[in-house]
Structures are given as C-alpha cells and as structure tokens.
C-alpha cells in the first residue's frame, strides 16, 4: 500500500508537470506568435507589445508554476 501511494505520487507529479508544461507551452507559444506578428505589422508599437506580452506570459506561466509546486509537494510528502 505504501509503495502504491508512492508510485501514485511520483506518477501524478510527473504526468501533472508534463501536462502543465504542454498547456503553458501552447499558451506562451500563441502569445509569442501574436506579439511578433503585431510588432511586424506595427513596428513603431513594438515596445508596448513587448511589455504586454511579458505581463501575459507571466500570468500564463503562473499556472504552470503552481502545477510545479504541486508536483514538489507530491514528491516531498509522498
């Protein structure tokens, strides 16, 4: 039973971390694509787009990082 719980914790941390990475990757990828596209259309606004892109990248990244912390907790307290 102990081993099973341990297995579950490792599996959950690994698979969960991977899924969170996929989600954040898609999100930041789409964000970066739009930011570059917008800067290419309006180069004079590139500075504004960069600031906004970093802000939203941080918000998306936050979700992935919370998944990372959950993974940590699972492995450390298994």
């Amino acid at each position: 039973m102990e081993g099973l719980a341990s297995l579950g914790a490792y599996l959950g941390a690994g698979v969960g971390g991977g899924l969170a990475a996929i989600g954040a990757g898609i999100g930041i990828g789409k964000l970066a694509a739009s930011a570059i596209e917008s800067s290419a259309r309006q180069p004079e606004m590139a500075g504004d787009f960069r600031g906004t892109a970093i802000l939203f990248a941080a918000l998306i990244e936050g979700v992935a990082l919370i998944a990372e912390v959950i993974g940590f907790l699972l492995v450390l307290t298994k």
């Binding site: 990244e61 919370i66 990372e68």
Partner: peptide, 13 residues
C-alpha cells in the same frame, strides 16, 4: 497568492 508562488517557483525551479 499567485504573486508569491510565481516568484518562489521560478527561483526554486
């Protein structure tokens, strides 16, 4: 909460 976890997890990660 997200502010705290973001900074913490980035550095630890």
């Amino acid at each position: 909460f997200a502010l705290a976890v973001r900074l913490f997890a980035n550095m630890t990660g």
